[in-house]
């Protein structure tokens, strides 16, 4: 436990010292929040209702889907995992600690957005915090899972960017960040439900006053099961070393994690 705490402590410091992590965890999400908040709330006043969850989801995507995987690939390539292994750092810590520190950064970003969106942009702050926290934790869990899995299965940094963008770009366009998936036409709505943010948006909407229906179990199930599957597959497919070519596991097994999303899209 002491080692785990020391590892977390170092990762937090690392995120502050590493400029690219600082950019993706704080600067990029907050600049986008300020820009979107200033523009969109003027162009479309109804967006004030969704500003807080949208920008929090954007921050989570930036921190966890875009930023989490690359350090994992770099660490494997540069022999950091080898050093960790010979010194007894367990796989679980290597996978959980970066996810957990990103989660802590997202709490900070989320609080900044939560407390400034109202005064700055007149965003709706009438929130049911129970549902809000549930949505926040679940989307963080699902996105951290994707980030970690991408870092584990990517052969190099270029592939990492490609895989991350495959989630990030559609999520920002049709995944409920700018437009709720329910406003999309039928087939596009189904495609949108292959993305974690669509489900998170449903839960955030409940926190903002949308009616509670039995259907709510689906987003909870999809986000939770996908997060669990991602971490499970990441630990199974984890490689300490890019040099040791022995019993290489097929990264295509990682595709298993989209099963809950496919089920969710089919259940619409």
């Amino acid at each position: 436990m002491k080692a785990f705490a020391a590892h977390i402590q170092f990762e937090i410091r690392n995120a502050v010292r590493d400029r690219s992590l600082l950019l993706m965890n704080y600067l990029f999400p907050l600049v986008v929040y300020l820009t979107i908040g200033a523009i969109m709330t003027k162009l479309n006043p109804t967006f004030k209702q969704a500003l807080i969850p949208s920008m929090i989801m954007f921050g989570i995507l930036s921190s966890m889907v875009l930023s989490l995987p690359t350090p994992l690939v770099t660490a494997r390539e540069s022999g950091i995992f080898r050093s960790y292994r010979i010194n007894g750092v367990p796989t679980s810590n290597i996978l959980i600690v970066p996810a957990l520190t990103s989660f802590l950064h997202m709490i900070v970003v989320g609080l900044i957005i939560l407390f400034t969106a109202g005064p700055l942009f007149g965003a709706s702050t009438s929130i049911h915090y129970g549902w809000f926290i549930l949505a926040f934790v679940l989307i963080c869990f699902a996105c951290a899972g994707f980030g970690i899995l991408i870092g584990v299965i990517s052969k190099d940094s270029k592939l990492t960017i490609l895989y991350s963008q495959m989630i990030f770009l559609p999520s920002t366009m049709i995944g409920g960040i700018m437009i709720p998936a329910s406003m999309l036409p039928g087939s596009l709505n189904r495609i949108a439900h292959l993305l974690p943010t669509s489900y998170a948006r449903e839960l955030f909407d409940i926190s903002l006053g949308a009616p509670l229906t039995p259907h709510v179990v689906w987003p909870i199930f999809v986000l939770l099961s996908s997060g669990i599957l991602c971490f499970l597959m990441a630990s199974l497919l984890f490689r300490w070393d890019s040099q040791v070519k022995y019993k290489k596991k097929n990264p295509l097994w990682g595709l298993v994690v989209i099963a809950p999303y496919v089920a969710g899209a089919l259940m619409l």
Binding site: A3, A6, F10, D18, A75, S78, I80, I86, N87, V89
Partner: peptide, 29 residues
């Protein structure tokens, strides 16, 4: 793992880890 010490030909440490942190980090583990 606590009984053997290994210096590898190709290994690394996180770029932002200081000398002091590295010693503390691995002693803790």
């Amino acid at each position: 793992r606590n009984l053997i010490g290994v210096q590898l030909q190709s290994s690394g440490l996180p770029n932002t880890m200081t000398v002091e942190e590295a010693i503390r980090f691995f002693c803790t583990y």
